[in-house]
């Protein structure tokens, strides 16, 4: 009984910490992105609220919370209200399977540094990332606005196309790690991260992840110069804020997944594993931001052509090659 209580307590503390860290990271990633983009464009970025703009996320939160929560007259009310929550919650849930450090010895028991070490963690992640598109699609459809609908359609088309390549690019990783569990995949990279052993899979997954997160150069669903704001055109106040939070949570989660799948997770010399993990996640996030500051948006047909004609065949070839090599190596070992 006491044991169960303690486990539960530890679990709650862990959950609370993860939630706090994740949300703070998401909030400060917004600031970091704005600052970094500004500096890449030789501006200052937000620098009015707090020292060097450090309180900007708080100010944004207050602003979003106090803004009118606008519901378009012809909108589908319940779907419209549900969609932003869906976008944010799926991103949060996906983090459940990400191991961010080796298990900790605490009070004489093994505490896994992962919310839930599913043995099919990868599949869980894919399931949730497919669900995330519902937030966008339903939000865009429920707004009853042509811009929002166009944005939602683009989002769906884009996600369908890239999910395939993304899934195929992971199969070699699973083959190499011989497990669906993320913890075991991370363990399999103790010596050498998969990014080095299978760089093509890493590249495909990275590009597909960019497309999944709807960021430049794949930000067609919210292309502001064509579609006003795409799927969230009609959203305001904290509902818009939820979409926003979801987007940056997604950034963190994708960073964590990329770290776990290809960059060796928490493994690294000298520094404690949690620092290595966070550092790698932030590095991935920086690269995402860097790409946004550098590359222009693709045209929709280019995006589709690239997904189906380049990434998908490449991923297939990579799968065959990796499988062949593994068979050959496996045969040898």
């Amino acid at each position: 009984m006491n044991d169960l209580l303690l486990t539960g307590l530890l679990m709650l503390i862990k959950l609370g910490m993860i939630l706090a860290v994740l949300l703070t990271m998401a909030a400060y990633l917004v600031l970091a992105e704005r600052k970094l983009l500004a500096r890449m464009q030789r501006r200052y970025g937000p620098n009015r609220v707090g020292f060097g703009g450090m309180l900007q996320p708080l100010a944004d939160l207050i602003k979003l919370l106090t803004k009118e929560d606008f519901l378009p007259a012809q909108a589908d009310k319940w779907l419209f209200l549900l969609a932003p929550g869906l976008a944010a919650v799926t991103a949060l849930l996906a983090f459940a399977v990400v191991p961010f450090a080796p298990p900790l010895e605490l009070f004489g028991r093994q505490l896994p540094m992962v919310v839930c070490d599913l043995n099919v963690g990868i599949l869980y992640f894919f399931g949730l990332s497919s669900l995330a598109v519902y937030g966008v699609a339903l939000g865009g459809w429920a707004s009853n606005s042509k811009y929002a609908l166009l944005g939602a359609l683009r989002a769906m088309g884009q996600m369908l196309s890239y999910e395939l390549a993304m899934g195929l690019s992971i199969v070699p990783v699973i083959l190499m790690a011989r497990s669906f569990s993320l913890t075991e995949i991370v363990q399999a990279q103790a010596s050498l991260p998969f990014a080095l052993t299978n760089p093509l899979a890493f590249g495909i997954f990275f590009i597909a992840a960019l497309a999944e997160s709807k960021r430049t150069p794949f930000d067609l669903p919210e292309a502001e110069n064509e579609l006003v704001a795409g799927f969230h055109t009609e959203y305001s106040g904290m509902r818009f804020g939820l979409f926003f939070v979801g987007e940056y949570l997604n950034l963190v989660v994708l960073g964590a997944i990329i770290t776990s799948l290809f960059l060796g997770g928490w493994h690294g010399p000298l520094l404690p594993p949690i620092i290595w993990f966070l550092g790698k996640v932030l590095a991935v996030a920086f690269v995402f931001i860097w790409i946004r500051g550098t590359l222009p948006r693709l045209r929709y047909d280019q995006l589709m052509a690239f997904g189906w004609k380049a990434l998908l065949p490449l991923a297939l070839v990579n799968l065959l090659a990796t499988g062949g090599i593994l068979l050959w190596l496996g045969g040898a070992s």
Partner: peptide
Amino acid sequence: GTFQPFWITLRYLFKRPVTIS
């Protein structure tokens, strides 16, 4: 053409902003 801009943005990251406050 795809990768050179990354170098430029990275360089700009460390330059002094031209904004007049």
